[in-house]
Design a protein around this nucleic acid. Structure first.
Length: 273
DNA sequence: AGAAGAACCTGGTAGC
DNA sequence: TGCTACCAGGTTCTTC
């Protein structure tokens, strides 16, 4: 569910809440599927209890909680995951997979659809989690630019949309922001990526950065499940995503929905060529 | 290699 | 009201 702006919003809030704090108690749902990448899950609670949190970081859609002892607790929220700061007395419900207790509150991971992942790593060796180990550059970094896209798109017949969502090309871009970036760049998401010219790649790289910054300023986009760790919704309002049949904000013609790579996609057929 | 499609899950909702 | 079908923001695996 959450893409880069949503995970970054959660990361910033958690950094303020958790940095320097000590983990007092951990409660895990032992049968939960969110630990499927972490074979030693029965040791997780014991390993992190009593540890101090040094910092909270983000790479792509992954949250990385840095603990003393060179341990990193990695969390991915999948489609429906939420990390919420709650009162310690709040009862836990059946979708809760992990609770981390601090002196005056607890952090709970809920994930009804169980696409999320939790794992613990030593010494920043994330090779057991290929999705994290093989992430491409952060889209808001200088590395992510038209030249990088040209290198990655060259000769590729897959759609622009499909490649924008490839986490090895741009870490953290998901279905919403791939559509939105294509709209800002006035490029059809259906175009074979290898056919874009340099000018279009410049607009696309800029469109990605622009939409991510806009959404960050709005604390992300709440379509259904997403909440910040303080329980707030995100205020980002999409140009095209989820708006089939409505007016294009640029030209007023009708926004169209189609399926690209098994994912619903929206675009304006008049603005986006 | 790369492209396309299915699978992994549950919950909400649209339609009958 | 109740049932079914379909849809959902991600990742990964299989097949061609």
């Amino acid at each position: 569910m959450p893409e880069l702006p949503e995970v970054e919003t959660i990361k910033c809030q958690l950094a303020g809440r958790l940095t320097g704090r000590k983990i007092e108690k951990v409660s895990m749902a032992q049968k939960s599927l969110v630990y499927r990448d972490y074979p030693q899950k029965q040791r997780l609670a014991k390993e992190i209890t009593g540890r101090k949190i040094r910092e909270v970081n983000r790479r792509g859609k992954y949250l990385q909680v840095e603990l003393d002892g060179d341990l990193t607790l990695v969390l991915h929220l999948g489609m429906s995951g939420t990390l919420l700061v709650r009162d310690k007395s709040e009862p836990k419900d059946r979708h809760c997979h992990l609770e981390i207790y601090f002196h005056d509150f607890k952090l709970t991971l809920r994930d009804p659809r169980m696409f999320g992942r939790v794992a613990l790593f030593h010494n920043h060796d994330f090779s057991a989690m290929p999705g994290l180990a093989n992430l491409g550059p952060e889209p808001l970094s200088k590395e992510f630019n038209a030249d990088w896209l040209a290198e990655k798109f060259r000769g590729r017949k897959a759609s622009v949309k499909a490649l924008l969502m490839d986490q090895a090309i741009g870490a953290g871009i998901g279905n919403i922001y791939a559509d939105e970036a294509c709209f800002i760049a006035r490029v059809s998401p259906l175009r074979p990526a290898g056919k874009l010219n340099h000018k279009e790649l410049v607009k696309l790289a800029a469109g990605v950065k622009k939409v991510l910054k806009r959404s960050l300023a709005a604390m992300g986009c709440t379509f259904s499940d997403y909440r910040t760790s303080e329980g707030e919704t995100g205020d980002y309002r999409p140009y095209v995503y989820g708006r089939e049949g409505q007016e294009c904000p640029k030209c007023g013609s009708v926004i169209v929905k189609t399926i690209i790579g098994n994912r619903s996609s929206w675009y304006c057929p008049r603005c986006q060529k």
